[in-house]
């Protein structure tokens, strides 16, 4: 219940508040979002497997996002930013699909 409220609160906050995204964050936000989605899907899988830990979830969520942004930032520094961001996106996408497949098997038994 709180989770749903949090989701709605996030959307409403962003719409009402309309924060201006800082320029330095612009190239990293999409990657960070995908990393966060990966953490969410992984947490959902853990919850279905009854191995969910809020501490692990919080740490993995933050570190996932931070590492994704860090990798892309370093890539920008050494001149392979767009390639590295593609690589990160591919890896995260694969992980999301894998976790989603596990969730699907657990929920739908198919």
């Amino acid at each position: 219940m709180l989770a749903i409220l949090g989701l709605i609160a996030g959307v409403v906050l962003a719409i009402i508040w309309r924060p201006d995204m800082p320029i330095w964050l612009q190239p990293y936000l999409p990657i960070m979002i995908v990393a966060a989605l990966d953490a969410l899907v992984g947490a959902a899988r853990a919850g279905l497997e009854h191995t969910f830990s809020d501490k692990v979830f919080a740490v993995s969520f933050i570190s996932n996002v931070a590492i994704a942004a860090l990798i892309v930032w370093i890539g920008d520094l050494i001149g392979v930013g767009s390639q590295l961001s593609t690589a990160v996106l591919v890896v995260l996408g694969i992980r999301i699909f894998t976790n989603a497949a596990v969730i699907r098997r657990k929920v739908l038994h198919a």
Partner: peptide, 23 residues
């Protein structure tokens, strides 16, 4: 607490997605 962590995480992600989409 579990719910609260979920709520915070979803809130952050939702806000980030909305900001990104808007921008």
């Amino acid at each position: 607490r579990k719910q609260l962590v979920w709520a915070v995480a979803l809130c952050v992600v939702a806000a980030a997605i909305v900001i990104q989409v808007q921008s």
